[in-house]
Design a protein around this nucleic acid. Structure first.
Length: 370
DNA sequence: ATTGCTTAAGGG
């Protein structure tokens, strides 16, 4: 809320959809030319050299090894849900990055239903306003404007939804959106995460664990933000945002309508930092997850998550070790092989093939002809 | 710009 009224432009997502065209020119990046020496990229990474074939491949050199997954996937930051998906199955998450947009119709129908339930709840607390953007600076500016309007709303009205969070964690920038924040009757700041379910039953422990990890990450990042631990310098460093690049006219207009006189993204970032740290925002006291049935909206159960800081940090360290190229991805343990049953990548999964789990499990009817 | 770039979450 606290957005400009004007609700005819509420088309929300609208266009973002088929435009991941991304013409991917083979980026012929020859980094190894005379760059003196103090630069040591890979961790003892040697040439793959499957048969002693050394250099002499000037173009597609970037394809194999020597680059971290962050670089290979051309990522500057990760989503919180990337890490919670990674918690479910790291190998599956990797396939999801390699082969994006690979969902069965049934699965995406469930996701769509969940998304619209979330949208309906969001609309209960504020209108949506479409702000046309043309650059990533614009996109971040809108995010910042949302933060600037939501903080006072939380403090005065006690409830906000879809609050953006971001912060460097273990060397990687993590970006996410908190479903809901509100103050309880006892004055505690509570994060409420809604999970909708196709069938009217509580999820298995593995999924609860993933969801607990997700909300724990939100608290981890949010707390760092209000404690001034998330700096604009860090954000700029990870995103390559240009603080002085002129903002688009619609963004500037939106800012003015919101009562913010800013001329650049840098101004906005400073305002956000000040607002976060000087608004008397507490750290999050309670983490709550509510599971409801999609069709009937019946509450299936509520989880109160005990925040274990060191445990969260250890997990994040482990997950980030993959992202920065310190270790290979791994699939699930044998006892969680049941997850493969609903995985879109099960039949191409190298983890399954290479004995991550005995291929004797499941698929009794998969007679190996030939 | 001898090289760029991203709405996050959606559920299992």
């Amino acid at each position: 809320m606290a957005e400009t009224r004007e609700e005819e432009t509420v088309s929300a997502e609208a266009s973002g959809f088929s435009d991941l065209s991304d013409s991917e020119f083979l980026d012929l990046e020859d980094t190894q030319e005379s760059s003196t020496s103090p630069n040591k990229p890979g961790p003892s990474s040697e040439l793959p050299g499957k048969d002693g074939k050394l250099i002499s491949l000037p173009k597609w050199k970037r394809g194999l090894d020597v680059s971290s997954p962050m670089e290979r996937f051309h990522l500057k930051y990760l989503y919180v849900t990337d890490l919670s998906t990674q918690n479910w199955c790291e190998q599956q998450m990797v396939y999801g990055k390699e082969l994006p947009g690979f969902l069965t119709p049934e699965k995406s129908a469930v996701l769509d239903t969940g998304a619209s339930i979330h949208l309906a709840r969001e609309l209960e607390v504020h209108d949506l306003v479409t702000v046309p953007i043309t650059s990533k600076e614009d996109a971040w500016a809108v995010k910042f404007l949302n933060i600037l309007s939501m903080i006072p709303t939380l403090q005065s009205e006690g409830r906000i939804r879809e609050f953006p969070v971001f912060g460097e964690v273990e060397g990687v920038l993590l970006v996410g959106v908190i479903d809901e924040l509100h103050y309880t009757a006892r004055g505690e700041l509570e994060l409420a995460e809604l999970k909708t379910r196709r069938r009217p039953v509580l999820p298995p422990d593995a999924q609860k664990k993933k969801d607990c990890f997700q909300v724990s990450l939100y608290k981890y990042i949010f707390d760092a933000m209000v404690q001034g631990k998330v700096t604009t310098a860090s954000l700029i460093h990870h995103t390559n945002l240009r603080p002085e690049k002129p903002l688009g006219p619609s963004v500037l207009r939106h800012a003015r309508q919101g009562g913010f006189s800013v001329k650049s993204l840098g101004d906005l970032m400073e305002l956000v930092f000040l607002s976060l740290t000087l608004s008397d925002l507490p750290v999050i006291d309670i983490l709550k997850i509510e599971y409801i049935h999609q069709e009937t909206a019946t509450v299936l159960g509520t989880e109160i998550v005990a925040f274990e800081e060191t445990e969260v940090r250890n997990k994040v360290q482990h997950y980030m070790a993959y992202w920065v190229g310190h270790r290979e991805p791994q699939g699930v343990d044998v006892e969680e092989a049941w997850k493969c049953r609903t995985c879109n990548y099960a039949d191409i999964c190298e983890w399954r093939k290479s004995g991550g789990l005995p291929n004797s499990m499941l698929e009794p009817q998969a007679k190996k002809a030939k």
